[in-house]
């Protein structure tokens, strides 16, 4: 720890702050797109900002116990953890804060941590709907995780590395070096799993207000809910960046900073739009449907990708 660079803490905080802003703007744009498809005017672009500030400014709040308190903290640390250990822009010292060898395993764990925390916290709130939502959410996310982990395993074998920075480095040069082209089967499996974890339409029965009220966070209010809302803004962005890093060559640092950010926004936005596109096109699955679906096609594709990778590399 002698040569620990303390500026990294500042950089990590800056990363989270910028990601929150990016996530909020993205939410506004996506909300607008959703509304326009439904022939509505839709929310104002700055509405997510106002919602978040209003939620933090609530005057009263009640707690149901220690685990209830820790649930949002787990959730937030899940989102922030992915962000901190991820090389957001390859080659830049600021935005690849704590990337190290083996961070792939840690990030796979972080992706699941939030759901677990939510399960414990929602369970302690004592509301029956929360328990129901937790059981639905956990079963669905677990199923979505299976093809995801298969794809991750597949690319780990392909690049002989568990370090995301190395995986990104191996994809540099030409766009033909992207995993999308070198290992399309794993990309397909992971992109299908991506839909399941984004909480958008075919797989949003867990949080759908029309079903059981709002799912796990039924009892969450005021600052607890604000914490969850903050996580909801950064978690999709973090996951999108993760997928860009895995399959779409990451974002390399160009000489022109503007170009770097342009590429970053374009790649993350397009990957994010994939879930929005599917969400706008398809109606909602029930949990049993989605579990069956995940165990059918994405898992088969994931298995094929593992076999393919083991034969070829």
């Amino acid at each position: 720890m002698a040569d620990f660079d303390y500026m990294k803490i500042v950089y990590a905080a800056l990363t989270i702050f910028l990601t929150i802003n990016y996530g909020l703007i993205l939410q506004g744009i996506i909300g607008k797109i959703y509304a326009r498809v439904g022939k509505r005017m839709g929310i104002r672009i700055f509405q997510p900002y106002v919602n978040l500030i209003r939620q933090w400014a609530t005057r009263t709040s009640i707690s149901h116990g220690v685990m209830y308190y820790l649930g949002p903290v787990f959730r937030f640390s899940g989102g922030a953890g992915i962000l901190i250990f991820l090389p957001i822009i390859y080659g830049a010292p600021i935005f690849s804060s704590f990337s190290f060898a083996g961070d792939l395993v840690l990030i796979s764990y972080f992706m699941f941590l939030g759901t677990l925390g939510m399960a414990l916290g929602g369970g302690e709130s004592g509301h029956p709907y929360a328990a129901l939502g937790v059981s639905r959410g956990l079963s669905q996310v677990t199923m979505a995780e299976i093809p995801m982990i298969m794809a991750v395993y597949s690319i780990a074998v392909q690049y002989h590395s568990l370090n995301i920075t190395e995986i990104v480095a191996a994809q540099q040069g030409s766009f033909l070096n992207w995993t999308l082209f070198t290992n399309p089967i794993a990309t397909a499996a992971a992109m299908l799993a991506f839909l399941g974890s984004m909480m958008r339409s075919p797989f949003d029965v867990v949080l759908a207000p029309q079903e059981i009220p709002i799912g796990p966070p039924t009892e969450y209010q005021s600052q607890f809910l604000a914490m969850l809302m903050t996580n909801r803004t950064i978690f999709p962005v973090a996951k999108t960046i993760l997928f860009v890093n895995f399959f779409f060559g990451g974002v390399a640092l160009y000489d022109n900073y503007l170009l770097t950010f342009l590429v970053f926004f374009l790649k993350t936005f397009l990957v994010y739009m994939w879930s929005v596109f599917v969400g706008l096109s398809f109606p909602r699955f029930r949990v049993d449907h989605s579990i069956r679906w995940f165990l059918k096609y994405p898992m088969l594709i994931g298995l094929i990708s593992i076999i393919f990778v083991n034969i070829r590399y």
């Binding site: 839709g42 709002i214 039924t218 009892e219």
Partner: peptide
């Protein structure tokens, strides 16, 4: 009518 453009949302639970 589209009340969302006035910043009006529906929540299913009194807590929120």
């Amino acid at each position: 009518y589209d009340a969302f453009r006035f910043g009006i949302h529906w929540r299913p639970t009194p807590r929120q």
